[in-house]
Structures are given as structure tokens and as C-alpha cells.
Amino acid sequence: MNARPKFNKGDRVIVRMLSPQPHTRTPAYLHGKPGVIERFCGAFENPEERAIGRSGFPLTLLYRVRFFGSILFSTNKTCEADIVEVEIYEHWLQRDNSHAKT
């Protein structure tokens, strides 16, 4: 049995800055960036494991995460995208507690 999804729609998360993997599906422009869970997508074989000849099991949970374009790039050029939505596996996400409920 797979673990239940740790995050729900609307939860604030931060993309973890994991050490470089041989293969990852988390683009570098998102490392360390805060976002919001848009939806849970299901459980899938772990591509980081499969890339190095392993089975991909246990399955890993996948979410779509919504980011504001304005926080994605630190260049002096404004990001023209209002929203960027990206699929990210659960082990790349941590809860963002910087907006603690009062």
C-alpha cells in the first residue's frame, strides 16, 4: 500500500534543494521556490530510481504545484508568466510554515 498524500490542495509548500541526482524530473528553476498544491495526480514509479536501473518501487506520489511567475526568476527582467504549474514528486516538497496560521 502506498502512503496517503501528505499534502492537500491549497497547501503551501517549498521545493527542496536536494543534492544533484543522476536523473530528476524537478527542474532547477524551481529549487527552493515556494508554491501551492494545485492537485494530487496519483502514484507513479519513481523516475530517479528507474534511471539507474532500479524498479521505481515503492511508488512515489505526484502533485501539480502552482508558482507565481514573479518569484521564479531573480534577474532584473520581469517574468512574463503570471502562473507556472509544474508536476513535482512528494519527496521534493516540504511544508512551507512561513505563513503560520494565527
Partner: peptide, 12 residues
């Protein structure tokens, strides 16, 4: 008009 970019990084 707002723009939303969808980056298909994984299984969708």
C-alpha cells in the same frame, strides 16, 4: 489576460 505556463515535467 493572464498567462499560465504548464511545464509537463513528469507523468501528465
Amino acid at each position: 489576460a493572464q498567462i499560465t505556463v504548464h511545464d509537463s515535467t513528469a507523468d501528465m
